[in-house]
Design a protein around this nucleic acid. Structure first.
Lengths: 143, 143
DNA sequence: GATTAGTCTACTAATTTTATAGGATTAACT
DNA sequence: AGTTAATCCTATAAAATTAGTAGACTAATC
């Protein structure tokens, strides 16, 4: 399951994507609207900034905004940054690869293929879920 | 990522599936062969037994064995028992459903569809991975 | 230079995961 | 009946991860 941090991150980003191009949005506003503990959100947004998803501006009129267009930010990136690997086994992870200690021999690991297939399917779906697509869906649902 | 408990469970079950029909296998043997801490494995096998995947026999000559044929035991069941929900969000889980606190309105939740699709694809792949299929793969790889 | 808003470091609390210890129970064999 | 070999059960502990908080610092604007 996704961590709260990750879910908070996704919701905050969708919120920011809705306001893309309208200047910085303050942490407090996002926290209030999305019901996220402010201090926790602060740390999360900082991580997203260091992960090159968000930019920030300090001082009056400052806040956070997307570093790229919404269609260029998808959920794989967000999840990797705030939740870790997408694969269910370390030995089939693209970005967080580690050999399984409990695997006697990796190449012939019985369960590897299954989880490799799952990873590929999951990545496919997640990479189609970019912020632009999510915002579009949201607007449609609100009607 | 899957917990160690879950990975241990899967490896133990594949081991037992290989020996299906040859009488009970002792915890100690499985622990040694699969490099699993014995006491931890004990607890895991007990859970699998309570989950109606394994049967056990006490006393001398006792041990664990599959409660059903290998083709009738698939990874969805094993993962749910030893790792929890397969879905990435509680609100799209079949067996562990909970509404998301952080969702303002569930029906129109922006990200729900994405994770519903992932759950369905994952379930499909996992349910095809039954113990019989995994053992077959293993035998083929060993050649 | 006062105000406003993000930045950074460091901590704490709660929860979950990964075990381990030790005795109770059951079955088989002599 | 007694010994041995195995699982069953309860309780606990250590380690890791997650969730959240506090407070001083820095930069931008007016």
């Amino acid at each position: 399951m996704l961590s709260k941090k990750c879910k908070y991150a996704i919701h905050a980003l969708v919120y920011l994507a809705e306001r893309h191009g309208q200047g910085p949005v303050q942490i407090g506003e996002i926290a209030d609207q999305q019901k996220i503990p402010k201090k926790f959100l602060e740390a999360i947004l900082l991580e997203l900034r260091n992960g090159r998803i968000l930019n920030s501006k300090k001082g009056k009129g400052g806040g956070y905004y997307l570093q790229r267009n919404p269609e260029e930010i998808n959920l794989t990136e967000v999840i990797r940054l705030t939740n870790g690997p997408i694969a269910l086994l370390p030995c089939v992870s693209l970005n967080f690869y580690e050999s399984c200690e409990e695997c006697v021999n990796e190449k012939n690991c019985t369960i590897r293929t299954t989880f490799l297939t799952i990873r590929d399917e999951t990545l496919k779906i997640l990479s189609e879920s970019n912020l632009s697509a999510l915002v579009k869906k949201q607007k449609k649902d609100r009607k």
